[in-house]
Each structure stands twice: as structure tokens, then as C-alpha cells.
């Protein structure tokens, strides 16, 4: 998930750079167009090599700006897709966890501990976060293992991995973020 997030950020940077180039190139295009118009009004003709080249440059720049704008739009659309996918995935994991915890009838405290187990905290860290004795945490993890019919942290975590890998990821999760994105 972190990697995906980093990917979104790098795309964001790419979009910003593209936007900057569009502005610079747009202003250059304006400069050339202005120059061509001035030259024309001063009586030069298009068959003059200098003016012809300048006109071509102006057209090319305008075309480039439009092309970059379309490209930027594509990058933005891809960012939105990735962002939605990420959120759906996050929502999915939370849903899977909730489903399991409900089925095992975990208490609220055990739920918190279970989440931290999944996030990779060890017993001492969990005790510190929850401000309880590490003995309490050990008792709670033992409860969680017995309720989930597992015997170790690895086995416990693999339950969730299995669910996520077997399940169809896009299954009917309503998108709570409609209207989000570009």
C-alpha cells in the first residue's frame, strides 16, 4: 500500500512538471505568434524564409501545447483511477478484518490488539501503545489466537493474506469517494 501511495505521489510530481512545461511552452507560442503578427503588419510576406520558419515554429508550439494538455489530462485520469483503486483496496482490507473479528467475537480491546498484530507491532510495542502491562497483551494475543484457531502470529496473518489473494478484489465494494478525483 505504501508503494502504491509513493507511486501516486510520483505521478503527482510528473503532472506538476507537465503543467509547468505547458505554461512555459504556451507563453513561448504566444511570443512567436505575436512576432509573426507584428512582422506581417510591417509588410513582410510569408514566402520570406525567416517569417515562414517563425510561423512554422509558432504552429508547432501551439500543437505541442495542445498535445501536452491532452497528455496531462491522461496522467490526471490515471492518478484518479489509481487513487480510487487504492481506497477500494484499503476499504476492502478493513472490511475483511471487520468480518473476521465479528465472526470470532473479539472484544473491543482484542480487536485493537489484533489490528496492531497485523500492522507488525510486537507485544512490547502494543503494550506501550495501549498503556497496559505486556502480560495483559500476551493474554489478549493468546485469546485472539484461540478464537481464530491459529497458533502463531504468522498463521494469524496468513488468514488475511489468503482471503485477500483468493477474493475478487473489486467485488461490490461501493465507492464512497464518488466525485473524487479530476
Amino acid at each position: 500500500m505504501k508503494r502504491a501511495k509513493r507511486h501516486v505521489i510520483s505521478k503527482e510530481r510528473r503532472a506538476t512538471v507537465l503543467a509547468g512545461i505547458i505554461i512555459l511552452q504556451g507563453l513561448c507560442a504566444l511570443f512567436f505568434i505575436g512576432d509573426v503578427i507584428t512582422d506581417l503588419s510591417e509588410g513582410e510576406h510569408l514566402d520570406d524564409l525567416h517569417l515562414a520558419l517563425e510561423s512554422i515554429a509558432a504552429f508547432a508550439l501551439v500543437g505541442g501545447v495542445v498535445f501536452l494538455m491532452i497528455e496531462l489530462r491522461r496522467v490526471l485520469a490515471r492518478m484518479t483511477d489509481m487513487d480510487t483503486g487504492l481506497k477500494v483496496a484499503q476499504g476492502q482490507i478493513a472490511e475483511v478484518m471487520d468480518g473476521f473479528f465479528d465472526a470470532w467475537r473479539l472484544t473491543d480491546a482484542e480487536r485493537d490488539v489484533a489490528v496492531m498484530l497485523l500492522k507488525g507491532l510486537d507485544n512490547d510495542e502494543i503494550a506501550r501503545v495501549r498503556q497496559t502491562a505486556s502480560g495483559t497483551v500476551r493474554a489478549q494475543t493468546a485469546n485472539i489466537y484461540s478464537k481464530s484457531d491459529t497458533h502463531s502470529r504468522a498463521e494469524f496473518i496468513s488468514l488475511f493474506m489468503e482471503e485477500l489473494m483468493s477474493g475478487d478484489f473489486s467485488r461490490s465494494v461501493p465507492d464512497p469517494f464518488e466525485g473524487s478525483g479530476y
Binding site: E12, A19, Y182
Partner: peptide, 12 residues
């Protein structure tokens, strides 16, 4: 909730 609305070109 955060909603993306202004793209970089608009902001720049």
C-alpha cells in the same frame, strides 16, 4: 475526506 479538485495546471 479529501477530494482532488484543482489539477496542477489550474493551480500554477
Amino acid at each position: 475526506r479529501d477530494v482532488a479538485v484543482w489539477d496542477p495546471l489550474v493551480r500554477l
